[in-house]
Lab assay of single mutants.
Amino acid sequence: RTVITEEFKVPDKMVGFIIGRGGEQISRIQAESGCKIQIASESSGIPERPCVLTGTPESIEQAKRLLGQIVDRCRN
């Protein structure tokens, strides 16, 4: 099985929602997708915060879908 790493950007102001209380939301996304997610600790003042996704191509797609759902929910 091929493990790859891909960068994905999330809106900086939504990082708190993505991580969740005590990290529970990000842990759930990682468990559900099987993908490791590392969010940069600093956005360096830019509106997007880079995340590094590591896993199989399928797990990365699943993680991006779950992250996208959270971002959409927070935008509305």
Rank of each mutant, 00 (worst) to 15 (best):
I18Q: 03
A31E: 15
I4F: 07
I26P: 01
R49W: 03
G16D: 14
I70W: 07
D12Q: 05
I26F: 04
V15K: 06
C35M: 00
S44E: 14
I46T: 15
D72S: 12
V52H: 09
I19N: 14
G55A: 00
R65M: 14
V52Y: 06
T5Q: 07
G22D: 15
R21I: 06
I4A: 06
I26A: 04
G22W: 05
R1G: 11
A63Q: 00
K64D: 00
Q38H: 10
V71K: 05
S33G: 01
P47Q: 09
R75F: 14
I19W: 07
L53S: 00
T5E: 11
I37A: 01
S33N: 01
M14S: 05
D12S: 12
F8C: 02
I70Q: 09
L53T: 00
V71L: 07
R21E: 14
M14Y: 04
T5V: 08
E61I: 07
E7H: 14
I29V: 10
R49S: 05
C74P: 10
S59K: 04
I70G: 03
I39N: 01
I19V: 12
R21Q: 13
G22T: 08
R1N: 15
G23H: 08
E24N: 15
E24A: 14
E42W: 09
C51R: 00
S44V: 10
C74N: 14
I26S: 02
R28V: 03
P57E: 11
P11R: 02
I60H: 01
I29G: 01
R75M: 14
E58Q: 09
E24T: 14
V10P: 01
R1Y: 06
I46R: 11
G68K: 12
Q38E: 13
T56H: 07
Q25S: 12
R65G: 10
S44G: 13
I4Q: 08
C35D: 01
Q69D: 15
E58V: 06
E42F: 07
G55F: 00
E42C: 06
C74Q: 14
G23I: 02
V3Q: 08
E7V: 12
R28N: 06
G34F: 02
D72Q: 08
E32W: 05
L53F: 02
G22C: 10
G20C: 02
S59C: 05
L53N: 00
V10H: 02
P11W: 02
R21D: 09
R75E: 15
A31D: 13
S41G: 13
A63N: 00
I60A: 01
R1V: 11
T56R: 06
S33K: 00
I18D: 05
Q25P: 04
C74M: 13
D12E: 10
R28L: 05
Q62F: 11
T56N: 07
V71Q: 10
I37C: 03
C51F: 14
I70C: 13
G34V: 01
I46P: 15
I26W: 04
V15T: 05
A31K: 15
G55R: 00
V3M: 12
S43N: 06
G45Y: 04
C51M: 09
R75V: 14
P57D: 04
A31S: 12
G16I: 04
C35S: 03
G16S: 12
E32K: 10
V15A: 10
G20W: 02
G68I: 07
S43R: 08
P11I: 02
V15L: 10
I37Q: 01
V52M: 11
P57V: 10
I18C: 05
E42Y: 08
R65L: 13
S43K: 06
A63G: 09
M14A: 04
K64R: 07
P47L: 11
G16H: 11
D72P: 05
E7Q: 09
R1W: 04
R21F: 05
G20L: 02
R65Q: 14
E58T: 14
R21T: 14
I37L: 05
R28E: 08
V15S: 07
R1I: 13
V15H: 03
D72K: 11
E24H: 15
I19A: 08
S27M: 11
K13H: 15
E32T: 10
S33Q: 01
N76V: 12
T56E: 08
R73V: 12
P47M: 09
Q25D: 08
G16A: 11
G20N: 04
Q62Y: 07
A63R: 00
I39Y: 02
F8Q: 02
T2F: 12
K36E: 13
D12N: 14
E6L: 03
K9P: 14
K9T: 10
R1E: 09
P47I: 13
T5L: 02
V52R: 09
E61G: 13
V15F: 09
P50W: 05
L67D: 00
V52D: 04
D72N: 05
S33C: 08
G34N: 11
K64M: 02
S59T: 06
C51Y: 02
P57A: 13
I60E: 00
K36Y: 05
R73A: 12
P11F: 02
L66K: 09
E48G: 07
K13N: 14
K13F: 03
S59G: 09
I18H: 03
P57Q: 13
I39F: 06
C51K: 00
T54W: 03
F8D: 03
A40V: 07
I39S: 02
S43V: 10
V3T: 07
S27Q: 09
A40K: 13
K13A: 10
F17P: 07
N76M: 14
E24Y: 15
F8L: 07
L66I: 10
L53W: 00
E32A: 08
D12I: 06
V10K: 00
I26Q: 04
R73Q: 12
S43G: 11
V3L: 14
C51E: 00
E6A: 09
I18W: 03
C35Q: 01
G23V: 04
K13I: 03
S44A: 09
M14R: 02
E32Q: 15
E24M: 13
P50F: 06
I18N: 02
K36I: 06
Q38T: 11
T54L: 05
P57G: 06
V52C: 07
L66N: 03
Q69G: 13
D72G: 12
G45S: 10
E61A: 12
I60K: 01
G22E: 11
T54Q: 13
P57I: 05
E6Y: 05
R49H: 09
S59I: 01
R49D: 03
F17R: 13
V3I: 15
I70Y: 15
V3Y: 10
G45H: 09
T5N: 08
K36L: 10
I46L: 15
G68P: 01
G20A: 06
